[in-house]
């Protein structure tokens, strides 16, 4: 007689629709504040160095996750680096085909132990390879807002 065992003629599969009505607002944080201002105002990429672990974090962090030292040694790293890995996107987040495929790469900036995930541009997706030398293309200073999108994309370095 248990209700789980009884076929239920009244019931048909019903779904209730709803949402979670929030927007997130993320501060750049103590280290992020300086990192993104350097990109915005000076077009420079800065990392923080842990002397103990001999690592340069990019994006800059306020502490070394390995030894827990507070990091206050800021060093400039290059606006260029190497493609560590990449992927080519053919579909967007809503599962619609993209007119032009997007290339997304992890770029390790020269002079640092870290890297940025960003788009690759000004290149044919088929020409991209791991180890490729690329450089950051920044927006015009007036357009920059202190965000990761102040970098338009990375592009291959013309030799």
């Amino acid at each position: 007689m248990a209700i789980l065992n009884k076929p239920d003629k009244v019931h048909q599969a019903i779904a209730w629709h709803g949402d979670i009505p929030i927007t997130n607002r993320y501060t750049a944080g103590v280290a992020g504040e300086r990192f993104f201002r350097e990109v915005k105002e000076n077009g420079k990429f800065m990392g923080t160095r842990c002397p103990e672990c001999d690592l340069i974090y990019v994006p800059a962090t306020m502490f070394c996750e390995r030894c827990f030292a507070e990091l206050d040694e800021w060093v400039q790293v290059e606006n260029q680096g190497q493609v560590v890995t990449y992927t080519i996107l053919y579909w967007d987040l809503d599962d619609q085909p993209l007119a032009v495929p997007l290339v997304l790469a992890l770029v390790q900036l020269d002079g640092s132990d870290g890297g940025l995930v960003h788009y690759l541009g000004e290149t044919d997706p088929e020409d991209v390879y791991i180890g490729m030398e690329v450089e950051a293309v920044l927006k015009d200073p007036a357009e920059r807002e202190g965000s990761i999108l102040d970098i338009r994309h990375f592009r291959p370095i013309q030799v």
Partner: peptide
């Protein structure tokens, strides 16, 4: 807070 959650935790 200005700090990110990671920074507060630290």
């Amino acid at each position: 807070a200005l700090e990110t959650g990671k920074e507060l935790s630290y």
